[in-house]
Simulated scan of single mutants.
Amino acid sequence: MKTLFLTLSLSLAPLSAPLAETLHFVTEEYAPFNYTKDGKITGIAVDQVEAIAKAAGIDYTLEIMPWARAFAMAENQPMHCVFTTGYNRERAERFVWVNPLLKDQMVLLKRKGEKYDGLTIVKARELRVGSQRGDFAVEALELIGFKDIDLASDIDITVRKLLSGRIDLMPTSIKTYEKMVKDGQPVEKAMMLAGQVYGIACHKDTPPDLIKSLQAELDKLIMSGEQDRIFTAYGLPPSTRTAENGAKK
């Protein structure tokens, strides 16, 4: 009987092994989605990532760093995932994905009171635009013809450049813009850009069982209304529902 029990245990062990591995989540300072407050990493995306990892029974770590470094770690180091990451066709094959942590629209911001009458993409390309190194927004701007984008290591530096007049425009999500206004930052919308889905991008060798478990828990989070509650807790309106048309790939 002991021999039979041991044989069964060994045969079942590999099925649960992937969930016992440690998954390393990395992100950047980018309120309100992921940022440090009172020494703790928090935010709309962080709350979702921690909730689904715990629900899936996955051992994980969470670290905050400059975006370019975080993105490179997830692409080059097994068992690493980066968020909150813009999903597009070019990135689709470079990672395995858990989507959507949010669906948001992009916006070009200007200093409050600055006049750019009748601003179009063509006119905006003639202005000084800044963003963060490795950020999805850089790729989005380059695809529509922007060149010589002023790159910083994080969003706080980009905002300071905008407010000091070193750049004229900066791209961000509409929800980040709303948070900036709420916090009293003197910025305004210059023009709207296309919408975007954001999620968790993991190294391609991440065990499929881990990705499947995380996606299943995120789907539950969305359908239960808990994702909406998280957005509301941070004082922002919920994302457009994307469980049916964007959560699975």
Rank of each mutant, 00 (worst) to 15 (best):
E114K: 07
V82D: 04
T85N: 09
L8Q: 08
V107W: 06
A190E: 13
A92C: 04
D219C: 00
F33R: 12
S224M: 11
K249L: 14
T172Q: 09
P238D: 14
V46S: 08
I58M: 02
M79Q: 14
M79S: 13
D168V: 04
F71C: 03
A152M: 06
A20T: 03
N99F: 00
V138R: 10
R125G: 02
D117H: 10
S131E: 11
G225L: 05
A194Q: 15
Q77K: 10
S213G: 02
A124E: 04
D154S: 05
N76R: 15
F231P: 01
I52G: 05
K40T: 15
T242K: 09
T172D: 15
M65R: 14
E126H: 03
I121F: 11
N245A: 15
A190F: 05
F33V: 08
D219E: 11
R94V: 02
E90I: 00
K175Q: 14
K204T: 14
D209R: 06
G195R: 07
R89L: 13
K112R: 14
G134Q: 03
Y234L: 05
R91C: 08
A70D: 06
L163T: 05
L4N: 09
R94F: 01
P237N: 13
K54Y: 00
K110C: 01
P78S: 06
G134R: 03
A140N: 10
L8W: 08
K123D: 08
W97I: 03
V98F: 02
D228H: 07
M191L: 15
M73A: 15
T27M: 10
R133V: 00
G57H: 02
R89K: 13
R229M: 07
P32G: 13
Y116M: 10
C202I: 02
G118M: 02
T36D: 12
A55R: 02
L109T: 09
S11G: 06
I149N: 01
P18Q: 05
V46C: 01
M192P: 00
A194S: 12
L4C: 05
R160K: 13
